[in-house]
Design a protein around this nucleic acid. Sequence first.
DNA 1: TGGCTGAGTATGCTCAACGCAAGTCAGGTG
DNA 2: CACCTGACTTGCGTTGAGCATACTCAGCCA
Lengths: 158, 158
Amino acid sequence: MPMQMSGPLAALDKWQPDGCSMAMALDIIGTKSAMLLLREAFYGTTRFDGFVRRVGITEAVAAKRLKELVEAGLLEKRPYQEPGSRTRYEYVLTEMGNALLPVIVALMQWGDTYLRDGEGPLRVVSAETGEPVSVRVAPSGTDSLGPEGLAVRINRKG
Amino acid sequence: MPMQMSGPLAALDKWQPDGCSMAMALDIIGTKSAMLLLREAFYGTTRFDGFVRRVGITEAVAAKRLKELVEAGLLEKRPYQEPGSRTRYEYVLTEMGNALLPVIVALMQWGDTYLRDGEGPLRVVSAETGEPVSVRVAPSGTDSLGPEGLAVRINRKG
DNA sequence: TGGCTGAGTATGCTCAACGCAAGTCAGGTG
DNA sequence: CACCTGACTTGCGTTGAGCATACTCAGCCA
């Protein structure tokens, strides 16, 4: 059962999903390499050749994607200096980049559940308690909802 | 601050993220058209030309992606019959497809927040109460966590 | 029997994503 | 001062994603 489309949205043949936020998001992070670079950033990778090695892409692709992610505001390029080396740059998630955490974790868990029978190589848990975490769609403080528990409304400012 | 990588995972230069579930997931839904088709399925679109019109892709691309999504098990092709028409097929989300809801909603909300100052065209709310929903990463029944509140462990069968 | 419609298929093209290989460039080490 | 290393850049070829146009095919309708 799909989401409930409220009011004028109910007639799917009468409106177009123009300017969809998801489509805009995908223009930035819609490539596999961009997603995997972000995964690495969440894992704590910061340096160019770390990204290259761990994502398994070429330097050319890494350079291009990292530049795009910096321009889009998801990563910040900041100088650092190791003793006995010249100043270099590392790539660190901004608040905007950090906010993609639910997307990354949701994708991982979906993959674990449906593409490998619930047994992925890694597990994401609470750092404090060690409890497994899950990604949920819900109003604050309540149980999570499926599509049939959700409705889509036209957004009016206010 | 990134996630806490536990034990052997802490040395990022000593292991490779092989067989990552997210990478596998992206092999299926890693294209913009696949994602937008899924969005439409959540909105309630079921018919071929509905997908074509609303996603704004060509019939050729729609046919290819829909076939892939059916083969991957995210959509189910099921016969239906309108009075005075012959039997046709519609595309409906399977449980596996439904489980992608958090990914779609998370992307929408991220786009709303960071690409349009919190004012996207649509809003996802609880069908029952009308309250706005959000996507959260957390252990059941607790507050949501950011990257710094999460840890990554090697998964051992239990 | 000939058209109409919904659901595709077929063909041809462009551009983006990516890989491989080689070159550049700045600065620190021997 | 030559060399090395990390961080890229450049060039070239392949594959996949996407558009546009045209065509097919089944069955209902006149």
